[in-house]
Computed example of a mutant assay.
Amino acid sequence: MNTLYFTEEHELFRESLRDFLQKEVVPHLEKWEKEGTIERFIWEKFGEMGYFGVAYPEKYGGMDLDLFYTVILLEELQRINSGGFAAAIWAHAYLAMTHLNKEGSEAIKEKYLTKSISGEMIGCLCITEPFGGSDVAAMRTTAEETEDGFVLNGSKTFITNGVYSDYLVVAAKTAPELGGKGISIFIVDRDTPGINATKLNKLGWRASDTAEISFDNVKIPKSHIMGEKNMGFPYIMQHFALERLIMGVNAHARAEYAIEYTLQYMSEREAFGKSINQFQALRHRLVEHATEVEVSKTFNYNTTKRLDAGEYVVKEATMSKLKSTKVADEVIYDCLQFLGGYGYIEEYPLARMSRDSRLGPIGGGTSEILKEILSKMIIDQKNYKPAT
């Protein structure tokens, strides 16, 4: 146990969660991977166990625990080797629900956040657009204000939980003439007329439903705007720190699991009269990877500690995602190689892991975009500030 960051209570939570995942989730994963649908009952079981509420106020059914409980949830989800299932869970709990908690009115929290914590409702976050990609300010979706609300038109893509969620947290321009300064955030019920979702066929993350969503004259009541009008862009930027750190933690966790599995395989696999973990070429490559993972993990834990203390760690979270996802891809690539032909077989975990891991440097802001953001902060001395 890393006592610098984790207490005995943390470790008891980890043991309980690991047992829950093995009993309640793992037996169904192959089915969900093949069908691309996660059955509804597991969301309710997650809610019953309180896993959706670890970071949220007790007032709405949460437990208001520190961020290291979230880290444990993320790490253990990676160990069961379904990037799609993990993504569906954390996209609900930390993308959609973060906006509910931070910008939602009391009425929105009582209706949507409470039921999201209990697992009765599933949410998705709709920001990325077909023509915008990582350029949030360039979004074209609009929400035109009327006497009794707003009318939403446009489209979003690559939306996790985009098909089967009950509500959508949507970013749209309420003042297009202001560019990025004219974006607002709304909560929209799935059954509102004018919403259409098309499921996308992906390389990896097969268990999750990822969608392209269109909005055709979707009417939204005024009470469904979240936070202040035209403040959507700083809200989104503020929460990107958590999203990037989440993806960094996911990356170090899956890389660590890949090494753990590969070490066991190498100790049992023999070639030329000895186990392959005795060949220097393999040993040295593996320990180099283990070092990179340990460095990434330690950095991610330190960044989590600072974020939990209220620091605005947008630079560090961006570094976390950039570095950790690169490390994970390199580790998993070589671990698959160490398994030889078996690494290429679906019955072994590295085949799925290599597909799922590849999204790491793409989703939540591509590595190229993150490098430019960091260049502005480090070279140009740009100072990003949280929304007030």
Rank of each mutant, 00 (worst) to 15 (best):
E268T: 07
F233C: 09
A253M: 04
L242W: 06
Q264P: 07
A255C: 08
T210D: 13
A258R: 02
P234H: 11
M247H: 11
Y261L: 07
D216K: 15
M226N: 03
L245R: 05
Q264H: 12
E268A: 08
Y235I: 06
F240G: 02
F233E: 02
T262P: 03
G227R: 09
I225D: 01
A255E: 04
R254E: 02
D209S: 14
L263Y: 00
T210H: 12
Q264Y: 06
K222F: 13
A241V: 05
R244Y: 08
N230F: 09
V218H: 06
G204W: 05
A211F: 07
F215I: 05
A211T: 07
M266E: 00
Q238E: 09
N217Y: 13
F215E: 01
Q264R: 09
E228P: 01
E212M: 03
Y265F: 15
Q238P: 03
I220Y: 03
L263G: 04
P234D: 08
D216C: 12
I236C: 06
A253K: 05
E256M: 11
E256H: 12
K202Y: 11
G227Y: 06
I220L: 10
R269V: 00
M247L: 15
T262H: 00
R269D: 00
W205M: 10
R244I: 09
E256S: 15
I225L: 12
D216A: 12
Y265Q: 04
D216S: 15
H239G: 01
E228Y: 10
I246K: 01
R254I: 13
E243K: 11
F233A: 11
A251Y: 04
R206P: 02
T210A: 07
H224I: 01
K229F: 09
A211G: 01
N217C: 10
A255Q: 01
E270T: 13
A241C: 09
R269W: 03
N217T: 07
H252Y: 14
I259F: 04
H224N: 15
D216T: 14
K219M: 14
L203W: 09
F215H: 03
W205K: 05
M226F: 08
M266Q: 00
V218Q: 04
F233W: 02
